[in-house]
């Protein structure tokens, strides 16, 4: 039980041998990765690579089949509810859709963590809220409702809410997805600024190659639930692995070599899946 709060001091996140299933289907295969303090780690992969599932595990929203996830030195599976709650005040999350509370104004959304977790008075909370809105260039928008914001503004407001408690660790799920290139690039700049100005460790989950190469210190490439590579930007670029090169050059996977398996699938005869864990 003493392992709960150990782990290297210079790591924000350590994931060891993470295995997880949806029903009978295995999603993650022995995923291991680490995020160092003060770095931007980009978890990259196509649709269905398991990156969203991995993020859910890092956030403690899903319990793994096996393996350990250690966030800021604490093992998620071993934390009691009180400690987990405390840990969560030290992390911030910006979800893909923003996930702003649609019944509250932008300002109330951003102030919510302060109202719930601190004893600050209204004036201070108001100042801190406007300060964070300033950081994401949304000053003056605090009285609008989320429905009145554009896609890029929602993402920025979500970022403001994620950093309002000055977290040590920030998670961003697809920060630039669905935005035009200019706005997407401004979000990337914002993420870089947050790391530089506040020294946060940042985990970004994305399939966007341009923004990956712009912001990442290190990249974790996920494919079909396995870590293909975990290395610096230069090393990933220089990789000779065909699957990584396919991903980087936006090439599709080569054609199915097994014609029999293809036919069986078309006939619906329950050919075993490629990961060998097809349903019975």
């Amino acid at each position: 039980m003493t392992r709960g709060s150990t782990g290297s001091a210079d790591k924000s996140i350590e994931v060891i041998d993470l295995v997880t299933h949806y029903g009978d289907r295995q999603i993650l295969h022995n995923v291991s990765l680490d995020v160092r303090k003060g770095e931007i780690m980009v978890i990259m992969g196509g649709s269905g690579s398991g990156k969203t599932t991995l993020l859910a595990h890092l956030l403690g929203l899903k319990a793994p089949t096996s393996g350990t996830v250690r966030v800021l030195g604490s093992e998620l599976g071993r934390l009691g509810p009180m400690d987990l709650q405390k840990l969560r005040t030290r992390t911030g999350v910006a979800f893909q859709s923003g996930a702003l509370f649609s019944s509250m104004s932008v300002g109330d959304n951003i102030a919510l963590p302060l109202r719930e977790h601190t004893d600050l008075d209204r004036t201070t909370i108001g100042i801190m809220t406007r300060l964070k809105l300033e950081v994401v260039s949304l000053a003056g928008f605090e009285d609008l409702m989320p429905a009145e914001l554009s896609g890029g503004m929602i993402k920025r407001a979500a970022l403001a809410r994620a950093i309002v408690m000055d977290p040590e660790l920030l998670f961003c799920d697809e920060p630039s997805a669905g935005l035009d290139p200019v706005v997407a690039s401004s979000i990337d700049d914002l993420i870089l600024r947050l790391r530089d100005a506040m020294g946060m460790s940042i985990v970004v989950v994305t399939h966007d190659l341009d923004s990956t190469f712009k912001i990442a210190d290190r990249i974790c490439v996920l494919d079909k639930g396995k870590v293909l590579a975990l290395d610096s930007v230069e090393a990933i670029r220089a990789s000779t692995d065909t699957r990584i090169q396919n991903l980087l050059n936006r090439r599709t996977e080569e054609a199915e070599p097994d014609a029999d398996a293809y036919l069986r699938r078309l006939l619906g005869e329950g050919a075993p899946r490629q990961d060998g864990t097809g349903r019975t």
């Binding site: 709650q85 405390k86 969560r88 999350v93 996930a99 649609s102 963590p113 977790h117 998670f171």
Partner: peptide, 22 residues
């Protein structure tokens, strides 16, 4: 239900706010 599909419930959870309490 709407809050759930918008990830607002997840959002509360990761903020350390119990959705049941809130």
């Amino acid at each position: 239900g709407t809050m759930r599909i918008n990830q607002e419930i997840d959002s509360l959870t990761v903020m350390g706010i119990s959705p049941v309490r809130f």
